[in-house]
Every structure is written in C-alpha cells, then in structure tokens.
Design a protein around this nucleic acid. Structure first.
Lengths: 130, 130
DNA sequence: GTACATGCAAAAAGTTTGCCGACTC
DNA sequence: GAGTCGGCAAACTTTTTGCATGTAC
C-alpha cells in the first residue's frame, strides 16, 4: 500500500471506510468536503490506477455512472431497484453457488447481483432517492 | 407480440435468432446487412421500447456499450475477459445458488456473470477480438 | 532533473432528445 | 387528422486524453 499520492490515499481511505459503492461524483464530493477537492480527470486517473493495482473494483451495476468498491473480500451485491442503493453482502457459511460452466472455461471473478426491493422501500412510500 | 413496427420486429427477430448479446452497433450492422438500415436514434428508441415491454433485457456487462438479450429464460452469463464474447448459459439441473439475503429484502432478478478465460482463448494465442 | 501528480480544457464514446416530415388507420 | 414511426442533428452524460504546470526526491 505504498507509493500512493495523497489524493490516491484519500480516495482509497474513503472507499474503505464507506459502506457504499460511491460513484466518481460522490467520491469527488467527499474529497471536497474534506478540503481536498480533486479534478474529475485526476480522480478518474487515480481510480484507474487503484483498479489496475487491484485495490479497488469498478462496478457497472446499473445504467448510471460506474461505482467503485474497495471491498476485496468475496461478496455479492444486492441493489434496490427503487432507491438504487447497493449493499455488499459477504459470502456466509451455507451460501452456495454451483453452476455448470461450459467445457474448458476457466472461471475467474464471479459477479452476482441480486436486484429487488429493500426492506425500507418495501415498507414505506417510495423515498425517491438514495 | 403485436403492435411492433417493422423495424422493431426485425430487431426482435435478430436478437432472438442470434446466440450473441449484440451491442446496438452490431444490431445496426445486422439490420443494414438485411437491407433495413436504421438510424441510431431510432434503434435505441426501439430497443428502449422492447426493454420496457419486457421482451428484451439490457446488459451492462463490461465497460463497453450495453448489450441486448432477448433470451428471457433464466440463465446466467459467462464472459471471456480476453476475447470479450458473452455466452448465455441456461440454468441446469444440479445448478444451485443459495445466498443469505439481507432481512426483509425481496429479491427480483438475479444477475450472475462469471468472468474468465474461454476454452478457445485458453488454448490458442490471443485472437485480439471477438 | 527525471519521473510522477495535477488541473483545465477538449475530445471521445455511448445514448437520449428535439424537431419535423412521413406513414397508418 | 391523431397517433405512431423514423431520420437527422444536436444535446447530454460519463469517462478519457493532451498538454502544460507543479511537486517529490
């Protein structure tokens, strides 16, 4: 975890400490709030470097902007189609996912996203935004 | 399956008869080849209508353009990270995917994508393109 | 002083929208 | 003739790139 510029450190810290999967825009807001505003271009450049270094994953879960995720533990994603929030859910004892892969295919990363309605949205009236 | 214009019919036919998950660009090429070229704008408009009508699914599997899929049977996706091709793999007897979802979450669509290296790419030298 | 880091502006890629004319019933 | 359909061009959003300046060691 050496060799990162300050900005890159801050991005990584933020990603590690937020439970969300922020978009680039939200990351920029967070940096700004912390008094270390970053230009969009450099933010993306740094995110690209972090992704290339394997410290961050880039997710294209929905039609909006990409989301970034510093949780490298095996997990899957649960997204609410009403409020658009995304949760990490760690793989737990008892979870299984055995699928018949094609002959000769060498699996790498498994990406599992379950779309549905979260508990909050299922209850209350639609809150319009995450 | 009524009420579709000719162009929309052709798009749907093409999507149903190709084993691939073409991008809008590839669909346009196919229509063109068939002598029914469509403007990009109307192609997207029609795809949007088909998606809204539930006859087609829109996939954002990688960083490139969206892909469209008229296979509505339960299936998951396998993509080769070298040649970028995408396959549908039908759920088979013996497949299982039981995950512990959060309390109160009402699951809808499950999206499972397995990234890896396909048999062809694992063998030969890198073919550079799908 | 070489290599990395940053910001700004411009470009690129993918997709959507506005507008207007054509076709359908 | 109201509503759908289609094309073209322009807009828009997200992300990347070029370039010139600034910083680190």
């Amino acid at each position: 975890m050496q060799g990162h510029s300050l900005q890159r450190h801050l991005i990584l810290d933020y990603l590690r400490n937020t439970g969300e999967h922020p978009t680039a825009e939200r990351i920029a807001e967070a940096l700004s709030r912390g008094g270390h505003a970053a230009s969009t271009s450099n933010l993306y450049r740094n995110l690209t470097i972090l992704v290339a270094g394997g410290q961050v994953r880039r997710l294209s879960l929905d039609d909006g902007p990409d989301r970034f995720d510093a949780n490298l533990d095996p997990h899957y994603h649960v997204t609410c189609t009403r409020c658009n929030r995304v949760w990490d859910v760690a793989i737990q004892e008892g979870d299984r996912c055995d699928l018949a892969l094609p002959e000769g295919f060498r699996p790498g990363v498994w990406e599992i996203t379950v779309r549905g309605i979260c508990a909050a949205c299922a209850r209350g009236p639609h809150p319009f935004e995450s």
